[in-house]
């Protein structure tokens, strides 16, 4: 991720959340989806995306499906059962983090 170190720790959560909503996605599609959703604010770099995807796959959170599209092979990722459970955990963790940060940064709103 290019724009901020703060986003780096959230890349797995972002990937899991997107796959939870879109059933199956391929690498390039994920980078574009994040760009679109954040209106270009967040840019997942290729050098960060693939290692994260491969790590999640190795941990058994993602399943892989390879299909021929436009005369070339495309690797799709989708959540496994454990991946779906982990998505819920990660999102909860992130919400708690945001809440805690809010308390620290803006105690009046908390």
């Amino acid at each position: 991720m290019s724009n901020s170190k703060l986003y780096k720790g959230s890349i797995n959560t972002i990937i899991l959340k997107l796959l939870n909503e879109h059933n199956k996605m391929y690498g390039y599609e994920i980078t574009q989806k994040v760009k679109d959703l954040t209106k270009g604010e967040l840019n997942i770099t290729e050098g960060a995306l693939y290692p994260a995807l491969h790590k999640l796959e190795a941990e058994g959170l993602l399943d892989v499906e390879i299909a021929k599209v436009d005369n070339r092979l495309r690797k799709y990722y989708k959540l496994t059962e454990n991946g779906t459970k982990e998505t819920a955990n990660k999102l909860e963790e992130l919400a708690d983090y945001i809440k805690t940060m809010q308390t620290l940064i803006n105690p009046k709103l908390a």
Partner: peptide, 23 residues
């Protein structure tokens, strides 16, 4: 892909597959 090119992807993929095997 940055100054490291594909090397980071290959390195991390190797690590991830090794981990998958061990798991």
């Amino acid at each position: 892909f940055g100054i490291m090119g594909f090397s980071n992807v290959v390195e991390e993929k190797t690590k991830a597959l090794n981990k998958h095997y061990r798991l």
